[in-house]
Design a protein around this nucleic acid. Structure first.
Length: 680
DNA sequence: GAGCACTGC
């Protein structure tokens, strides 16, 4: 057993945060209507929210916007759209319910259509990328927030919809944040134009509601009771200098004391850390004293193959305890039943914007209070639970209240392009709930200007015809530009494939334990011209065997992601056809492909320095070739890259070897400016 | 010389 570290409870806190200004919607002892309900009805009526149905509906009927706060398990997401529909509210149009994740939109639609005893896609449907299960009859529609945003480009007033429910608003995804502004504008405009009114309901689990309410012109806040089980929280007495060691101690302390049927979920920061900890736990578990239960240790992170992710849902054999070591994927995206204990290291790996370098940095950092509560809540889903926080209560008090919204942490080029396509009068002064910094907005406009997507005249930014075409693609602007450039180089077929490959998670799987095998098998795909062409080779080989699963396994290719690549490619190809783009293949001519890439990635180039390092042309930033690149051991004179990733070093990812001459052809003004800046 | 949190269109 590991020595050191300490975990005797310093303090116990009951998880029962009280709302500050409550308009309670669950009057104690409220009477149910005396009707004989069916089995499904009985289940619906047993939800806590049912008690509040009457007062809730009378509020929602009269309000144009509302903030609805409900803890998990309140049933708000499945019931409110049905209540509205059943009460005849919003019958002039469709009731939309947005979700940050596809799987959630699909499973919620399935559940609600079951409850309504209708076929999925009729009264109740869903729309996510690649899948549209809706029809003329659909009145309740679940969709991803990104999907509603894309629909808004075609119709900024969202005229199809009578009600928009923005769910999981506390997650503050970039799409939800843009939608806040879009629905707010649509609400006002529809009122001004005398169209049928839009109703907006923001649904959130957070306690920090003032910001939502203020933004929506003082919309009332309605509180729903949830069905969260009580969770005991233990803080450490002393700050822990080594959270990994502390996590290890906690896991084995729980393991020795608790019945083996009670599972443990540990929050860690990344793949490498989780794999190492998995190994350590398994090693220790082999040498446990007699009488101690056995242990099954399972890693969980997004890049783990799907089949291995599924293991966390299987119950451990009798007498074994399940210990899941996870990234923040288990915070929201994956819900595991039967978790009794949560061990929260209080750390997360996340992107943040570094003002001094102006770069995005991926770094291990403290979670926010809201995030810590979210993790804690994972212990109390079926029964009461226990959460070990591997930090002191004083430390917790110093955590940020909320996680900084995504919109303030990332590159805004896509968002700005979308706002322009939405015909927002002035994108520079768009009414964001949480405004990004003016610098971030300027940088995004700058990037769009370089790509030729916008015109700038004084303080007015407008979309060019090219920019409007770019907005039609569900891609980062630089990738849309690459596709739109490709007819000039007669390689649209190849560029479509490459862009699809880049916009999906890695199609190559690298099990650390079989590194040598991976390297030898992968040799046959490697192109000395870089990662883009290597990926193209893998895709061509995959298509040659018609996506054979055995082939994928033998070649460490992720079959699921590869299928997704085909879907993306088909979608992009459709858009090209709609834009009447000629689609040609360059066949074996890879030079044209690289020239095309140089013409759209010219602002992402780096040159080999005399000392063997690389420096970017744009800002002379010292950069290195990422170890995942096929060029890792090579030293080409000049490369373009898709992105910079700042971890321990500043790495270029996805590289392509190019000629310096091509770059000057691609953007003569840009390079003249850079040259002049270098002289000064 | 040595590494990649999580979503989504």
């Amino acid at each position: 057993m590991p020595q050191g570290g300490e975990l005797p409870p310093a303090k116990r806190v009951k998880l029962a945060p009280a709302p500050r200004r409550a308009m309670l919607l669950a009057p104690p002892g409220a009477k149910r209507p005396p009707l004989a309900p069916s089995a499904g009805e009985t289940q619906r009526r047993s939800l806590p929210i049912f008690q509040a149905r009457g007062p809730l509906l009378s509020q929602l009927r009269s309000l144009e916007s509302a903030i609805l706060i409900g803890e998990t398990g309140s049933g708000k997401t499945t019931q409110i759209p049905q209540y509205l529909y059943e009460a005849g509210i919003g019958r002039q149009g469709i009731i939309a319910v947005t979700q940050p994740r596809r799987v959630a939109a699909i499973s919620l639609a399935t559940r609600v259509s079951d409850e309504k005893k209708t076929e999925l896609g009729k009264l109740v449907g869903y729309t996510v990328r690649f899948e549209d299960f809706t029809s003329e009859e659909t009145r309740i529609k679940f969709l991803t927030d990104g999907m509603l945003l894309r629909e808004a480009i075609g119709d900024p007033l969202l005229r199809k919809y009578s009600v928009v429910l923005l769910d999981e608003a506390h997650e503050r995804t970039i799409h939800t944040d843009v939608l806040f502004g879009v629905v707010k504008a649509a609400l006002k405009k529809r009122k001004d134009l005398g169209k049928f009114p839009l109703k907006v309901v923001i649904m959130s689990a957070t306690m920090d509601v003032d910001q939502f309410s203020q933004y929506f012109n003082g919309a009332p806040v309605l509180y729903l009771e949830g069905r969260q089980h009580p969770i005991q929280i233990f803080y450490t007495k002393q700050p822990q200098s080594d959270y990994l060691q502390a996590a290890l101690v906690s896991v084995f302390q729980i393991h020795q004391e608790a019945p083996s049927s009670q599972d443990i979920l540990v929050f860690l920061t990344g793949q490498e850390e989780i794999e190492a900890m998995t190994k350590t736990c398994r090693d220790i578990a082999k040498h446990l004293p007699d009488g101690c239960p056995q242990m099954v240790v399972m890693p969980l992170y997004a890049s783990l193959p799907y089949s291995q992710q599924l293991r966390v849902f299987q119950a451990a054999p009798k007498g074994y305890r399940k210990v899941i070591l996870s990234t923040n994927i288990a915070e929201t995206s994956i819900t595991i039943a039967g978790i009794k204990y949560v061990v929260d290291t209080g750390m997360v790996k996340a992107k943040k914007f570094s003002p001094e370098s102006g770069l995005e940095v991926l770094a291990v950092q403290r979670v926010s209070k809201a995030q810590a509560w979210q993790r804690t809540g994972r212990a109390g889903r079926e029964d009461s639970g226990i959460c070990y926080r591997l930090y002191t209560e004083d430390e917790f008090q110093k955590f940020d209240k909320m996680t900084i919204p995504e919109i303030q942490r990332c590159n805004l080029a896509s968002v700005m392009l979308q706002l322009l396509a939405l015909r927002i009068p002035n994108v520079l002064t768009f009414d964001f709930m949480s405004k990004p910094s003016p610098d971030a907005i300027q940088a995004a406009i700058e990037q769009l200007d370089l790509l030729g997507a916008v015109d700038r005249k004084e303080d007015q930014v407008t979309l060019t015809p090219l920019g409007r075409k770019m907005a039609a693609f569900p891609l980062e602007p630089k990738f849309s530009k690459t596709i739109l450039m490709s007819p000039k180089f007669h390689c649209t077929e190849e560029i479509l494939t490459i862009v699809s490959l880049l916009s999906v998670d890695s199609i190559l799987y690298n099990p650390p334990s079989r590194r040598d095998e991976v390297q030898s098998v992968r040799k046959k795909f490697i192109s000395s011209e870089g990662d883009h062409l290597t990926l193209l080779n893998v895709y061509r080989a995959f298509k040659n065997v018609s996506g054979n699963k055995e082939w994928c396994k033998e070649n460490f290719v992720n079959n699921r992601n590869m299928t997704l690549v085909s879907d993306v490619r088909a979608q992009l190809r459709d858009i090209c056809l709609k834009l009447s783009l000629p689609i040609e293949s360059s066949r074996s001519d890879t030079r044209n492909i690289r020239r095309c890439l140089a013409h759209s990635l010219f602002m992402n180039t780096a040159e080999l320095q005399p000392d063997g390092t690389y420096a970017t042309v744009d800002s002379h930033q010292l950069v290195a070739i990422h170890p995942s690149s096929v060029l890792f051991h090579c030293k080409p004179a000049c490369v373009t890259y898709n992105e910079l990733l700042h971890t321990n070093k500043c790495y270029m990812r996805d590289l392509c070897v190019v000629d310096a001459d091509w770059l000057c052809d691609a953007a003569p003004d840009y390079f003249r400016r850079k040259l002049r800046a270098a002289k000064n």
